[in-house]
Design a protein around this nucleic acid. Structure first.
Lengths: 348, 348
DNA sequence: ATGAAAGCGCTAACAG
DNA sequence: CTGTTAGCGCTTTCAT
């Protein structure tokens, strides 16, 4: 094989609709009509045009089309951490459902940083995305709302802000379910654990659910642990402590409700490291039901979110909004959660 | 708050460069010059224009710009399974490095299906992406090559095809390393496990490395297990068998080299289920070193790929190709792997 | 049934 | 230093 054959050539200019037109001996409008399957085109010309298209390898330029149509089929998807298995799966599902409805997804990973969240959204807006799907909203609601106001439809999937459509689980209910499971198992000293980098509005609701469950059970006080794995320290009710101390001593925490599975699994890992036995010394409940949670070796009790349903309804909501099938004030759709009981929890 | 305030309004038409121009009392070229930080613009007009931009909330229309410039800053990223933690992490890194070099990533999940791979690439091509990054290439090389030929630069990151730039680890060497670790531990009956849905060119190389390690050690024959978790059966050297039987009896397999961590962890899970002890009854080596592999409860011995380096070099390669800083025939860049020894392997 | 013409919002010469 | 002009590739009236 000659070297020249193997060389990577400068990208050749792709054929335009005009090339096809002259090749087929018709006007460009006719080509356009054929491409878009517009009715009134005679069978013979249609065939001729099709032939020219195949021959030249013509592919319509979406940018040009969308420029004249004044709207794109691009959906911006904002996600905090693609490496978090929950979001990875959601991203995949969102992409699939978007494609099924004729939209192309443009992702934007924000690292949970409100600065890059704004920057990402700005980029999406420059591409004139038809809508934005937030899988995480970690940012500053005020600023974001200002930059987005009246620009594009927005849907929050698995998270919530009151200024856009929402499709999510009832986080309060879910957290209550998870915490109550611990209460029912006889635990009295139950803490809430969150990873600060990932905190958003959902965490607030989950904290709320946790709190309500404690109150209803006449338990208290609530204990909030803010922990960045794999650190040995954490902020417990706002003050810095050695994490291991929290789980030892007479007043020790015997069970934890984590605001998501990543936090829960990190805590389990921590427990293993410091020779705390789960669930014997410490029961752990997570939130999300990431695939990993189901592994026998992890076996995490957790509150499962119906990921596919979230993605499907989320895309449906924004597509309907874009296509003006849905009008009026923001709508919230809540889907059910259910507790998956595994081996990370046990009676006290 | 009035209901009308909360309603989701029809997207307002965003201001154009002309609006800004008239607002600032200059021509649109001047606005354009300001936006693009073009030198020769007087400080006073620059300020006036900037003011108008802020006031109107003007945001350049990237589509229009890229249409006239005849090139986009969009990078297409083709990935087989975003939910696979290795690819999720790679996707995230690729997005970040792309952004750092001024490109926007457009992802396209193929489910390892060559049909949707083609469809996805077609879509990317319609958007006139500046280049395509393959994180997986599961497809039909022939067809793909035809559709891409002379269209856009292509880079294969962590996978390889000879018709584009490649940035990957030396899969053969990596697999040899992993397998040799088993050989050195005294294992004599070592099998190769792959999940058919995820197989691609890398798997072929990894099989090759596995084979070479066996040959060099004077061991054999090689055994290839093609398994779809969590099935109880698998194709062993082409014939269907109960998977558990492979690891029992006098001629039992005592160690396995899996073509990736997902397969390895699935196998470990299977072993747990059928009461095979890892590593006592069965040693397992994976490939990738996904974050999960490092959890104490998983503790998978595996061949680690330097993900960030792969992503960085991959983006550098394609960006250089796009920007004509790199010319000539396809180039292959191999980066080092290293074996991470954990508790899933032990001497026979 | 087909073609001509007017833009979509922007950049990039080129004039002034 | 600033404005004028000619497109980029396409869709969309409106004639023919």
């Amino acid at each position: 094989m000659a070297a020249s054959q193997d060389s990577v050539p400068a990208a050749r200019k792709p054929p335009t609709i005009l090339d096809v037109a002259s090749h087929a001996g018709v006007s460009k409008s006719t080509v356009s009509n054929v491409v878009r399957d517009f009715p009134g085109v005679s069978e013979s010309t249609r065939r001729r045009v099709r032939a020219a298209i195949d021959q030249l390898g013509y592919r319509p330029n979406v940018l040009a089309r969308q420029l004249v149509q004044q709207r794109t089929n691009i959906l911006g998807v904002v996600v905090g951490d693609l490496a978090n298995p929950f979001f990875a799966e959601m991203a995949k599902l969102v992409e699939r459902h978007a494609a099924a409805r004729g939209y192309t997804a443009m992702f934007c990973n924000t690292e949970g940083d409100s600065k890059s969240e704004i920057a990402g959204v700005e980029t999406l807006l420059e591409y004139r995305v038809a809508g934005i799907v937030f899988l995480t909203f970690s940012g500053d609601s005020r600023t974001m709302r200002e930059t987005l106001q009246h620009q594009v439809p927005v849907v929050f999937v698995g998270c919530h802000e009151e200024w856009g459509d929402v499709v999510s689980v009832d986080d309060v209910r879910g957290a209550k379910l998870g915490t109550r499971h611990l209460v029912d198992a006889g635990h009295r000293r139950i803490a809430f654990v969150a990873i600060p980098e990932l905190e958003d509005r959902s965490d607030v609701s989950r904290w709320e659910g946790y709190r309500e469950a404690l109150v209803e059970a006449g338990l208290g006080p609530e204990v909030r642990i803010s922990w960045s794995p794999p650190s040995d320290h954490a902020s417990v009710d706002g003050i810095d402590r050695k994490l291991v101390d929290v789980f030892n001593g007479p007043d020790r925490i015997t069970a934890v409700f984590a605001s998501n599975d990543v936090a829960a699994i990190a805590l389990q890992e921590f427990a293993d490291r410091v020779a705390l036995r789960v669930p014997h010394d410490l029961s752990i409940v997570g939130f999300d039901d990431v695939p990993m949670a189901g592994l026998a070796r992890i076996s995490l009790t957790t509150v499962a979110q119906p990921r596919d349903e979230l993605a499907r309804l989320g895309i449906a909501a924004i597509a309907d909004r874009i296509e003006h099938k849905l009008k009026g004030p923001p709508r919230t759709t809540l889907v059910g959660v259910n507790l998956v009981t595994r081996l990370s929890t046990a009676p006290l």
